[in-house]
Design a protein around this nucleic acid. Sequence first.
DNA 1: GTCGAACTTCGATACCTGTCGTACTATCCG
DNA 2: CGGATAGTACGACAGGTATCGAAGTTCGAC
Lengths: 111, 111
Amino acid sequence: MSPVTQQAELPQPAREEIRIEQVLAALGDPVRLLYVRELANAPAEGIACGVIPLPVTKSTRTHHLRILRNAGVITMRAEGTRRIACLRRDDLNASTPACSTEYWPHPTDPP
Amino acid sequence: MSPVTQQAELPQPAREEIRIEQVLAALGDPVRLLYVRELANAPAEGIACGVIPLPVTKSTRTHHLRILRNAGVITMRAEGTRRIACLRRDDLNASTPACSTEYWPHPTDPP
DNA sequence: GTCGAACTTCGATACCTGTCGTACTATCCG
DNA sequence: CGGATAGTACGACAGGTATCGAAGTTCGAC
């Protein structure tokens, strides 16, 4: 299991395999919700997964990103030593519209 | 603290107080999601909170219902010895549209 | 080749929380 | 009144999981 395989995306569920239970459980954690919110503001092509600040260590970050990826919330692809993460907006809207990412206000954001 | 106070609703957040973090965390538990899904099929006036079957004991049910209520997902009002529960559809759609209850397919339901 | 940066993996730990059983309260009905 | 029903409160426990640190891997740059 090489951590950076150079090619293609890391394992993730296909659109039809996305389970709303998994998505909700993934989003239920404050750290993961924080991450996804930041990612939602990033360009659609995605950003390096490490650039979003999180109040946890690197290994914990890896843990949370794997959960988000396994749930089908995000995609990650390798680019050199980096992982580019992006939100699976279309897949989420198609498979679990109840979890639509189009409106996730921050606590401080005005509605 | 009388368990059945005869009057009014049990404490719950106002619409403006509903936090998407809380809602997502509440829905992240399989037992609670099961409950909410069943409740979503019930008449809009609500149903006695005990009639929805759950694979847990009464006290655990109380625990889960309190979490759903505190998160703003459901309302409960006393009627005799019963609690009538109903989904806060409008409040959820207004405060956390990302958690819109209008489409929560069951695993076995066809999309 | 060597170094550093970016992540992952693994093991250990500590906390959270879902679970249950028991006891208790309130209401309804006979 | 007494019993049955519906639900809550509380304490205890176990499993899950979020967390960290240390070690390892890959890649890019010098």
